[in-house]
Design a protein around this nucleic acid. Structure first.
Length: 291
DNA sequence: GAAAAGATTAAA
DNA sequence: TTAATCTTTTCC
């Protein structure tokens, strides 16, 4: 496992002076990861006790749990995550990005998210590809205004917006800009940094190849999140966090994927951003070019 | 109340 | 190339 992660980090080819991505203690992460009982494992889309409790449509998960819910509190896993942060040299210097970081135009935020880290439990992913969705954008979910589904998009920047696509895939967005604006950045692809075994388990694929994490639905699955994670603040410790990371040397830009229904000006807008020289990019790759 | 479509994925 | 799969939104 150590060998494979080292290989993956090599492939990233990012200047990471202050970020040693070497994983010299993978087994420690495994030990620190909160244990899940069988019922939770069945649905990896909901491992968070508070969210499961609020779940209505997927109450099957709640019913099948063996541990009484009221015995589980949020601070416990939070502390464990903190201890792993301190004890592992890999992430000693990393910091959670502050609330202010996200209060900008999605078009500015999107490229700035490249190279940053998403962390949940023992899983750490590095963001390699994103898309910006903005106000007055005929491809943005916010185009319908504030609805039950899209309300999170109009929340303050730094929250998560998770939606279900094709009834199957959970898509993670980082809400951008001020409250009420209605902008977000879709995470389209990541590279694995820590917790490879958990990622593979959640994905159901025993591979280290880019097929593991190159696609927005794959990222959501690897992080084990559901739509219940909408509104979750990424700038506070616990749950899902966005950590600072190295700025990529070179990036690529291109038109966004799968928005043929939008107006031509938005279909053609170059609002897709990716790290150059990494294999962790989703399809299609041939529409990406240097700026 | 019904119908259509979707910021996709994996397998054939 | 195509099936899987279901929520959200729009239209009548």
């Amino acid at each position: 496992m150590l060998q494979s992660l080292t290989k993956i980090n090599f492939l990233l080819s990012i200047s990471a002076r202050s970020f040693s991505l070497q994983m010299n203690s993978s087994k420690r992460f495994k030990r620190i990861a909160p244990k899940r009982n069988k019922s939770v494992r069945l649905s990896q889309s909901c491992n968070d006790s508070e969210r499961c409790a609020n779940k209505s449509s997927k109450s099957v998960i709640v019913r099948t749990r063996t541990t009484p819910r009221h015995n589980q509190t949020l601070p416990q896993p939070k502390l464990k995550i903190q201890s792993s942060l301190v004890s592992d040299p890999c992430f000693r210097d990393t910091t959670i990005l502050p609330h202010d970081f996200f209060q900008i135009d999605a078009l500015d935020l999107a490229p700035r998210l490249l190279g940053k880290f998403l962390r949940r439990d023992d899983v750490v992913l590095q963001i390699t590809e994103v898309e910006a969705y903005r106000p007055n954008d005929s491809a943005c979910h916010g185009r319908f205004g504030i609805t039950p589904r899209t309300a999170p998009v109009f929340g303050p920047g730094g929250n998560a917006y998770v939606y279900l696509c094709y009834g199957l895939h959970t898509m993670l967005n980082v809400v951008a800009d001020k409250e009420g604006v209605g902008a977000a950045v879709l995470i389209r692809a990541c590279a694995p940094v820590c917790g490879l075994e958990t990622i593979q388990q959640r994905r159901g694929q025993q591979t280290e190849k880019p097929i593991l994490l190159t696609g927005p639905g794959k990222v959501g699955q690897a992080l084990g999140i559901s739509t219940e994670w909408s509104y979750h603040p990424l700038y506070t410790p616990g749950g899902l966090e966005l950590l600072d990371g190295p700025e990529p040397d070179k990036i690529l830009i291109g038109p966004r994927v799968g928005i043929e229904y939008a107006l031509p000006e938005h279909v053609n807008a170059l609002w897709r951003f990716a790290i150059a020289d990494t294999p962790w990019i989703s399809a299609p790759k041939n529409t990406l070019r240097p700026p």
